[in-house]
Design a protein around this nucleic acid. Sequence first.
DNA 1: GCGATTGTGTGCGCTGGCGCGCAGACGGGC
DNA 2: GCCCGTCTGCGCGCCAGCGCACACAATCGC
Lengths: 237, 237
Amino acid sequence: MSVLSVQRAATGNRLLDTLPGRDLRRVLAGCETIELAFGEVLYTPGERLGYAYFPTRSFISLVMPVDASASLEVGLVGSEGLFGIPLALGADASPVRAVVQGAGSALRMAAARFCGELQRSPALQRNVDRYVLVHLSELAQTAGCTRFHMVEARLARWLLMTQDRARADAFHVTHEFLALMLGVRRVGVTKAAGALQQRGLIHYRRGNVTVLDRRGLKAASCGCYKADREAYVRILG
Amino acid sequence: MSVLSVQRAATGNRLLDTLPGRDLRRVLAGCETIELAFGEVLYTPGERLGYAYFPTRSFISLVMPVDASASLEVGLVGSEGLFGIPLALGADASPVRAVVQGAGSALRMAAARFCGELQRSPALQRNVDRYVLVHLSELAQTAGCTRFHMVEARLARWLLMTQDRARADAFHVTHEFLALMLGVRRVGVTKAAGALQQRGLIHYRRGNVTVLDRRGLKAASCGCYKADREAYVRILG
DNA sequence: GCGATTGTGTGCGCTGGCGCGCAGACGGGC
DNA sequence: GCCCGTCTGCGCGCCAGCGCACACAATCGC
């Protein structure tokens, strides 16, 4: 196994693992490893952003609140990214709520330290910049998808995106929660999920979903999942 | 009039006019002034981004294409911003189409030169970073707005945003075009615009809209316009 | 083992927006 | 002054998703 591949597996977070060894060591020195619990709220709009989070085995939902009771997921951060983009761009606040969607480990770095490391490591700066682009791209895609596509297709896309980040076929999520993410009624999710289950693409049972047929799910989803993946590959290789 | 305020009025673009004199001069040396015509397409996804555009008296729509025939506006760039964010983040492509929405002057800089200037001028880098944040914020807001709000409120928001960038009470825009921006049918726009006109908030006639009652329009719009403004002020002051 | 909590399934009436198609109104070009 | 293209207005049937309300099922705490 080459030195490079050892490095790549070092933390589990892609933004960090592709750093040159020296930068990586310095960055890691500023991080602490933490365990994120399912449902934990890492950030609420209005607060100050105290940390940047680099998911390693966890993943995080970015939820945009609208009109008190409504909300919509506008991003999903797994081990390919970070939560805390505004810090990298010179602000200490975000319009979105950050909720732990998949429990697991993450690295966390204090805001000020993160800004400092960005100055010191051009490689980190570059990685983060690229990730900002990926996020921008996903955001635009999500906006369009949300406007035009049916609940069932959007659900399929969501399941695929989540499966990628959970790196597992099964994960915990209730219809109620999904409804909040997709910005629809719980009943809408029940119907859509029922249809997907009927077709043998997924199986779910009291808050636990299992993806049975990933290929079929891709076919059932809108083109947005594919578009997301392509954008990701184009930008981050 | 202070030196500062003279500087601020120099180009008409806020990202540039807030630069220190030396940086501004160097950046301007790399720009050419151009006239953008209504409807002109500055960029189509798939192409290479050849230039960064800094609107001075013009403004530009960012349109996300979805499924061949559908599309949705996901951003509006006036003299407060630039088109070409991906360049600043190390890429040379964008998922959105850039269409001139308000004819007028702009500054344009070749992609490579723009990247170079960003390296040389921390002030420019900072301004652009902040603008990226504003754009991110608007994008998230738009995603939520598009999902949950009625056409009439969204139209009101659009008119206010456009009025800000056109810096005029009247501007050219047809129902057909609005429908493309809002991602709805032309008839939907006709109905919504009719309602706003009925209430004396706007006047329109064959592709020309006049805002008559800005305050009323704010009341008719969803909270998203206000939220956008607040985010802008918070980030860019 | 039993009640309380959480998660899923269903029915019903409503409505905003869709697709389609057509009619009228204005205005620029010749 | 006329014609034709552009812009606006309207009607009709349709349907996805909404709000509400209730029923049942699985799990958890005790």
